[in-house]
Design a protein around this nucleic acid. Sequence first.
RNA 1: GCCCCCAUCGUCUAGCGGUCUAGGACGCCGGCCUCUCACGCCGGAAACAGGGGUUCGAGUCCCCUUGGGGGCGCCA
Length: 579
Amino acid sequence: MPQPAHQPAPSTPVAARATRTTGRFPRRTTPPPAPTHLLQAAAGPTAAPARTPCLPHSPPCRAANTHPPAWRKCTRTLVNSRPCWHERREPQTPHFQGTTPTMSKVRTRFAPSPTGFLHIGGARTALFNWLYARHHGGEMLLRIEDTDRERSTQAAVEAIIEGLKWLELDWAGEPVSQFSRRERHLEVIRQLLDAGHAYYCQCTPEELAEMREKARAEGKPVRYDRRCRELGLCPPHDKPLVVRFKAPHEGEIVIHDLVQGEVRFPAEAMDDLVLMRADGTPTYNLAVVVDDHDMEITHVIRGVDHLTNAARQTMIYRALGWEVPQMAHIPLIHGPDGAKLSKRHGALGVEAYREMGYLPEAMRNYLARLGWSHGDDEIFSTDQLIEWFDLDAVGKSPARFDFAKLESVNGWWMRNLDQEKLLRRFIDWLPHAPAEQRERAETALKKLEDENTRARFEKLLPALRERAKTLRELFDLAWFLFAGRPLEMNAKARKLLNDDARALLAELHGRLSALPEWTEDTLEQAVRTYAEEKELKLGKVAQPLRAALTGSNVSPGIFEVLEALGREESLARIADQAA
RNA sequence: GCCCCCAUCGUCUAGCGGUCUAGGACGCCGGCCUCUCACGCCGGAAACAGGGGUUCGAGUCCCCUUGGGGGCGCCA
């Protein structure tokens, strides 16, 4: 399992292989679409359209001539105030360690932005990426999309990594910080500018807001009106400049999606999106294209909320002359009310599910079934998931998150997981118990170090697990094994222990202490005989006994409990409650 | 407002033109088992959103309506 290290390893010159565009994914069966009638001119730098001259007041710049040496002069001020490109050193790009590309290998990536915990939708996206890669013998990479410096936090990065680890979704190499690849992104922006696929724009956020408002009021599509597109602006300039992509004027962008099928976006719907902000930082859509390309991602699997980004990114790929990766946009997960998943419905961080006592295998099982199916099958081991998962069985309609079903699936895994593994899961869970159980959990953890207690627990585990839907319930059910005397009684247990019951316990204590052998069988025989003699139904005897032994009205079979607890402890507990 | 996507029991889904009086699972209701609670087993209620086409034949294909969702940032 990779460590959450964020220091890029010493670099392989990513840039060097970054421009390779052919023969990289020979295993592809469906070649990427080429509806290039509108973007033919965008085939690459060599096919760039004519340059527009600079404005009179600007000094000559790259946009105006084709001499490479002019670069330096110009790039000095490309980023309005900050000189970031003037020294043309090799960009420090992360080395995608351990992921030496094999031509035919499927490479997916999970690319969360670290602005919060790993929520349930993100977890499923990660799972699908992971399963798809595994199914095809490839690998999943992890990229942290931390270009939004305001909202990205290290704590979130750690929470995401922690969440993935809990779900046991591993990735190849080190996590890649998108922010750390900034230089490379700027380099590509420069390339785009150079080729005439991008231009400087001087519009301010205020002007743009005004533009949008007007368009909306007139019922027109809300888009940038491209007023700077042919101005030939370039830095230095009296206003801050951004770099925009030149979207095609006509035709359409067609994306071939493995889940959504063929989706067409008319060119009129495409905006001249910003590639570089006024502060000189690259934007998401540009960064994603560059990173996916450099990381040699073959399949981009993400939420449908990115579908329009797919169209935008496709334009950028084409302008760069790069091959577009296969794409799959999976439906989103909704809350029980069909609306967006809200906090109280399940938009919780995966650590919350861990706390609630769900098992990773159950989580994977449930999440996989949300939007994907394999006939009538409901329960899947991870190996089966890997064997059977594929994008063609992923539906297009959104699914609602259903706690009841999750719980049921979890219950199945509670009952059927390998005993050793369940034990380990339980012990691993204890330190993550919810706050109100933390104290007891610590006690249990300590008690489990005691061989005797541990043996009791293991002995009763088969009976306990059958009654628990979650690790948390298992813990509640098992608590009486760890609790000290005198046992705390719950309300129903107290009610059970009336005077008659206490008197009965006193008699029973006598009988049981006389027993030569303390086994489930001898105990059952003794108790049954006692009940018959007293002409009582077994329940009348078992329930007070249960209360005395477990402090509860619910437990595994009473004779099992008696045996597991042992003679000494059992008799002591009975004596505690006897009259 | 504009663009895109979706639509089978309450929920997740099977169904890829005839085998559908629509199957499974969760949940719900009834029962059996029984020392409690579970597990397990048996049974039940419960759906093709509506309207037009196409076809000998439509849950399955097409169109419209309605309803949901996503997107329209110098966020990702």
